[in-house]
Amino acid sequence: MTATIAPLFKDVAAQAHAPVRPSAGRALSVTLRRLTKAFDGGEPVIRGLDLHIPAGQFVAIVGRSGCGKSTLLRLILGLEQPTSGHLAVDGRDGRAAGPSRKIMFQEPRLLPWARVADNVAVGLGREGSRAERREKAREALAQVGLSEKTGDWPATLSGGQRQRVALARALVSRPALLALDEPLGALDALTRIDMQAMIERIWAEQGFTAILVTHDVGEAVALADRILVIEDGAIALDVDVDTPRPRRRGDPDLAALEGRILDQLLARA
């Protein structure tokens, strides 16, 4: 567990510390160089940010409200355009959004008028025949443990189940990068722990690059390979978490790290 300076991209191809996973599938690396974003000529929200995320890494981004972490996430997804600087995804220009990068929002955002399986199929876009889409949606629902809810209306599900449907929708197209924008913020504590375990398991199985924006430092420490603390649109702290998985809640190393990150966040109060 050592603080490292974000590696600058002298060599994007050499992803030396990308974790190797047994079943790692397709994953994207992300490289930001001097990235700046200002809205309508105002103060920049992201200030000349340099960051390299190797393919398959699980990165957590923490910071106070309004520090620019959600904007950073949207920039990486291609949902916002940078004011200046470069964004490379897998070594290529990443400014245009594409189907290989998916986001899971804080709210489930399910279509109330579509059955659970049809909501999941939204994640497939126009790809595949009707039967194929149904089959893929069913598989994705099985992965989040909701096989028996395929034909239900979203209104009949609990908050945690809806968020699991949203996760299935994000994962059904097998994205190479999954952005999670405080996806568990609205859930109760126990459901949140279940969901964290589910996200970690699916990430380990599919091997995509995961970028989690969260307020919850404990969540970041439990899930991430690496934690970035963002302050005023810049990286204030970049820490690798090498505690082996599965991680035990209440592990003293993790608790110490959580304390350190909280100190960093609170020091600026």
Partner: peptide, 19 residues
């Protein structure tokens, strides 16, 4: 928020309207 979701998930204007 639903419209944004539709856009982010790649729906074009037509699909956005009907779905």
């Amino acid at each position: 928020q639903l419209i944004e979701m539709g856009r982010v998930y790649g729906m074009n204007r037509r699909e956005l309207f009907w779905r």
